[in-house]
Write a protein that binds this DNA or RNA. Structure first.
Length: 498
RNA sequence: GGCGCUGGAGCCUGAUGGUAAGGCGACUGCCUGCAAAGCAGUUUUAAGUGGGUUCGAUUCCCACCGGCGUCUCCA
């Protein structure tokens, strides 16, 4: 099957070929762990997950690594991120968002990072992020790789790509790497120093070139610091990804590197400069694939706008007023193309809930009809072939979903076959539980005691032909988030997914 | 200003040089005590603007306009 991805490096769709036959090595830039991850973060992460799962569907063995950034990097002119996190944690403890006892000492950055790392893994797991669910060893933490970063910096100095400035700071010399700017288009002559308004002139004076970026900063006072040949201090932001990608994936050139579009410059540009500067190879990753940003109800998501949602905000019902099943959020976040700005809306969420419910019900129906039988199916199956072919076209998810919708409506006279097709599609979509997947099925269509009590009361009322009472109970159940169906003699209720 | 992406019905969107497909929603009917769900049907003047190529352009090309990202915190 011919697979195309849009490569940010060349600004065009390219046919995908892996370096090693049948194996794909991919790296995704992960979260910084000094706050809960938001739905925008997850849109980008889940796009990487979708890509991974698609590649597996078509037969690749995928080695997917995602880092956890737990080093508090210095932000010029602002407080250190970990220090900022410390004060936020103190506030969150007061408000109860961070439970009592979860972080004993908010002034200990390791405890903060550890807490938010666990929270992230928990969210990612619920959302069916395969690496978090099944390969936690492929999620390295930056603080465990300081030694490797120091080695890479030493090698970059040896090879003439880095220098120690007069203030003791180690910088990467962009002029030593003519390819700098190939990914972002921000070549050295075009870079307008400080056009983004984030650079202070002060820190520029020690550099050989304004675009030179930091590799190691000696700083005794920094909240997280390590010994190094250049004094006690901390590493630059970009070096961790170069080091962890090489160490975890075991080679200098990898197949795919993903991330949010904002990471193209400077982060990914700098990663390329570091990795290639160190290895001498012409490429760090052969395919750079970036996800567009997410909007909320047509606006940019921002804390000041009040439309800033973490994944757990959505789960807990802070967006819709009702709890949302993680599978619904996952589906909502992956159902639009990764290179378009998706618009996250309440309506979209309820739409997704309907689709997810429909799929789950179809599977339950197929399962009971199949009576334990399961067919073997592969991509020679026309439905799956159409599904995979759509995704092979730069992850055309809408096309794949169109295939799926058509298939749902089609004839399912061979339930064992349909079940197998369903599971194959779901191995990519991961919106409902199949053996060992990350999404819990605890509340898929079930009901709790309170709902059950109301249901029984309703049945009794109906036997007594007390329709007023029956209707009242029905309204209550609906308000409590149930779908209520009244049959000839029975009443069934189902917890809605969103 | 540079570089890059993007523009379709109420919403999300597929394919496509020749009738623009599907999903959601909405509406109607069957069903129901009434609903819901399900099934059937309806939702027919939907492609930012202006040029160009063409017998014919939503599709290819150019310009413009709008939206978005980036230009040293960032998914």
């Amino acid at each position: 099957m011919k697979i195309n991805f849009y490569n940010s490096l060349t600004n065009q769709q390219e046919e995908f070929k892996s370096i090693q036959d049948g194996v794909v090595k991919m790296y995704s830039c992960g979260p910084t762990v000094y706050d809960f991850a938001h739905i925008g973060n997850f849109r980008s992460f889940l796009f990487g997950d979708l890509m991974r799962r698609f590649l597996e569907l078509v037969g690749y063995e995928v080695q997917h690594v995602m880092n956890i950034t737990d080093v508090g990097h210095m932000v010029e002119g602002e407080a250190d991120k970990m220090l900022a996190a410390a004060s936020r944690v103190k506030e969150n403890k007061k408000s109860g968002r961070v439970p009592e006892g979860a972080i004993e000492d908010p002034n200990d950055p390791y405890q903060i990072a550890d807490y938010y790392t666990k929270a992230f893994l928990d969210d990612a797991n619920k959302l069916g992020y395969k690496v978090a669910a099944e390969y936690p060893q492929s999620m390295p933490r930056a603080t465990d790789y300081i030694e490797g970063m120091i080695k890479m910096i030493e090698r970059l100095i040896e090879r003439g790509h880095a220098y120690v400035a007069s203030d003791g700071v180690v910088y990467y010399s962009v002029e030593s790497f003519p390819e700098y700017g190939n990914l972002s288009g921000n070549t050295m002559d075009k870079l307008q120093s400080g056009a983004g308004g984030r650079v202070s002139d002060q820190n520029q004076s020690m550099k050989k070139h304004p675009a030179d970026f930091l590799l190691w900063k000696p700083d005794q006072k920094h909240i997280m610091k390590w010994e190094s040949p250049w004094g006690v201090g901390y590493p630059g932001w970009h070096i961790e990804c170069s080091v962890m990608a090489a160490e975890k994936l075991g080679q200098d050139v990898i197949d795919i590197h993903t991330g949010g579009e904002d990471l193209i410059f400077p982060h990914h540009e700098c990663e390329i400069a570091q990795s290639c500067g160190c290895s001498g190879e012409s490429h760090f990753a052969n395919y750079w694939v970036h996800a567009r940003f997410l909007f909320v109800e047509g606006d940019k998501m921002s804390k000041s706008q009040g439309n800033f949602y973490t994944a757990r905000d959505v789960f807990e019902g802070k967006v819709t007023g009702k709890p949302v099943h993680p599978a619904v959020l996952r589906f909502e976040l992956i159902k639009s193309h990764y290179r378009s700005n998706m618009n996250f809306t309440k309506k979209g969420l309820t739409d997704s809930a309907n689709t997810v419910m429909k799929l789950i019900e179809l599977r339950q129906e197929l399962e009971s009809k199949a009576e334990g039988k399961m067919a073997e199916v592969d991509l020679s199956n026309p439905v799956l072939n159409d599904f995979a072919t759509a995704l092979a076209d730069d992850l055309n998810i809408a096309g794949a979903l169109a295939v799926m919708h058509t298939w749902i409506k089609s004839d399912h006279s061979d339930p064992a076959l349909s079940l197998a097709i369903w599971d194959k599609m779901n191995s990519v979509l991961a919106i409902a539980p199949i053996g060992g997947e990350g999404v819990s099925d605890a509340d898929d269509g079930g009901s709790d005691d309170e709902g059950e009590a109301m249901r029984l009361e309703m049945v009794a009322a109906r036997e007594a032909k007390d329709y007023a009472k029956s209707d009242e109970l029905r309204d209550k159940l609906i308000a409590a988030g149930y779908d209520v169906q009244i049959g000839k003699t029975e009443v069934t209720i189902k917890k809605k997914l969103a």
